[in-house]
Amino acid sequence: MRTQILAGLVCMSLLMACSSADKKETVQAEKPVAANTDEVQLTDAQVKNAGILTGKITQKTMHSTINVNGVVDVPPENTYSVSVPMGGYIKKMIMMPGMFVTKGAVLATVEDQQYIQLQQDYLTSQNRLKFLAADYTRQKGLNQTKATSDKIFQQTESDYNNQKVLVKALAQKLRLIGINPEILNENSITRNIKIYSPISGYVTKVNVNTGKFVNAADILFELIGPGELHANLTVFEKDAASLKKGQEVICNTTTNPEKKYIAKIHLITPNIEDDRTTTVHCDIQNSDHKLLPGSFLNAAISVGNETVDAVPEDAIVKWENKYYIFEEVGTRLYKMVPVEIGTTVDGFIEIKTNKQLGTVVTKNAYALLMKMKNGGEEGE
Rank of each mutant, 00 (worst) to 15 (best):
R2C: 10
Q4C: 13
L9G: 12
M12N: 07
L15A: 14
A21I: 15
E30W: 10
A34F: 14
L42T: 06
A50P: 10
K60Y: 08
H63S: 14
I66A: 06
I66M: 00
G70V: 03
V74C: 05
N78K: 12
Y80H: 12
Y80I: 13
S81W: 02
V82F: 04
G87M: 06
G88M: 03
G88R: 00
I94Y: 12
I94P: 00
T109H: 06
I116P: 00
Q117V: 12
Q120C: 06
L123P: 04
S125C: 08
L129I: 09
A133E: 14
A133C: 05
R138S: 09
Q139P: 02
K140P: 01
T145Q: 14
I152N: 10
Q154S: 11
Q155M: 13
Q163S: 11
L166P: 05
L166I: 12
L166M: 13
V167T: 07
A169K: 10
K173W: 02
L174A: 02
L174C: 06
I177Y: 08
I179N: 01
T190M: 06
R191Y: 08
N192W: 08
K194S: 11
K194C: 00
K205D: 10
K205P: 01
V206E: 05
L220T: 02
I224V: 15
P226V: 13
F236W: 12
E237Q: 14
A240E: 05
L243E: 03
E248I: 08
C251I: 13
T253W: 03
K260A: 14
I262V: 14
I262T: 09
T269I: 04
P270Y: 03
P270I: 08
N271K: 14
T279C: 03
C282R: 02
I284N: 01
I284V: 13
Q285H: 07
S287P: 03
L291S: 05
F296L: 11
G304N: 09
V308F: 02
K322N: 11
V329T: 15
G330W: 06
T331F: 08
T331C: 06
R332D: 14
Y334R: 03
V339R: 00
E340L: 02
T343H: 08
T344S: 10
F348V: 08
I351N: 00
N354T: 09
K355L: 04
V361P: 04
A365K: 00
K371T: 11
K371Q: 15
G375L: 10
G376Y: 09
E378N: 12
G379T: 07
